[in-house]
Design a protein around this nucleic acid. Structure first.
Lengths: 194, 194
DNA sequence: ACCTGAACACCGTTCAAGT
DNA sequence: ACCTGAACACCGTTCAAGT
């Protein structure tokens, strides 16, 4: 008898896993339930995915792959603002994603490519390698980790934009200071980083 | 025969769970293993903890309970800086904690008390209720979510302090603007929030 | 190469039974 | 009130077997 089911592929497995997590939460994503969703035995998934860990890695990278392409704006801060808010909006569509990201240890190809794009923006803006490194940390935690349950309610888009603007404004001030270091003595309260 | 084991209490269960998570990771914290650690059957834990969910809630709140008392400094930003970096340092001692926090839906008593202390600092500094609300969001995500695996390596204390200073500096600027609103037209690039 | 199904060593939790 | 141990419905993964 001919098998009418579409062939299983890694992409199809990951898409089904993402859809399942979106619908019923990450905890619902078990090899058994995911197999059921695809009309296949749980063990069949192991042909396309090395195991549960690889499945989660793949899910995160597939979400990052959906981030919109970075659009250049008038200023480097505007470019970053647009890119990161768009990334945050995609993450918000997958509430399980930030939590899973925290448990991953190495970024996939889409994630690496996205980080490279961010790095390029920072380098083109004239940030030193050291400051660019700090910038990625300051921005990454906030925008890709959007919600903050500890502080009561979920942060909405306006909250994210506000925090992001605070950081971007501060970074631009740092960039300017670095471009033209002050000749006089350091002001009290300056950051002691250089 | 007399039972020589110390009596099981909620605090003892939570402390053992935290120690186990610190040592072997959150995934090692199962009711069965935790029971083993305490020399007790898994089901005995249910007398002191409503279930796995309540256990995780309790673990998070117990960690927050270990945050140092907030010390007042010369400025409100210095007070917040000290308090949040100290909180971040305690969180860093429990690498599993930020990830677990994300999955919790309601803060425990220690967490509520800590947030109240932060709110008091913001109110005393003269921030409006609305700005204080945004400030808690901007600060919370970063400092209590320290590590950022997506962006390569773990952020260390200096990275956290940098991001924190950017946000605090921006908030103080907002506070000043709110206290003395500009009379002229809005500068280009101003945040469109009021 | 791809998929199956039984099996193994785990989970959280219910329940009836003990003290 | 506190603790036990068997039982139930789940996990991820190994393995031998099928096509």
């Amino acid at each position: 008898m001919i098998d009418r089911r579409p062939p299983l592929t890694r992409a199809r497995v990951l898409d089904a896993a993402i859809a399942l997590a979106d619908r019923d939460g990450v905890d619902a994503v078990s090899m058994r339930r995911l197999g059921q969703e695809l009309g296949v035995e749980a063990m069949s998934l192991y042909t396309h995915v090395h195991g549960k860990d690889d499945l989660l890695d793949g899910m995160v990278d597939a979400v990052v792959a959906r981030f919109p392409v970075v659009r250049r704006e008038a200023s480097w801060t505007a470019t970053l603002r647009g890119a990161l808010l768009a990334a945050g909006a995609e993450m918000a569509r997958h509430p399980w994603a930030p939590g899973v990201v925290r448990t991953r240890t190495s970024p996939g190809p889409a994630t690496t490519a996205y980080l490279d794009a961010i790095s390029r923006i920072l380098a083109d803006a004239g940030l030193s390698a050291a400051l660019a490194d700090r910038a990625r940390h300051a921005l990454g935690g906030r925008v890709l980790g959007l919600t903050d349950i500890l502080f009561g309610r979920q942060s909405d888009e306006a909250d994210a934009a506000f925090a992001l603007d605070l950081v971007l404004d501060g970074l631009d001030r740092e960039r300017a200071r670095q471009a033209a270091p002050p000749t006089g003595r350091t002001r009290e309260g300056d950051w002691k980083m250089w």
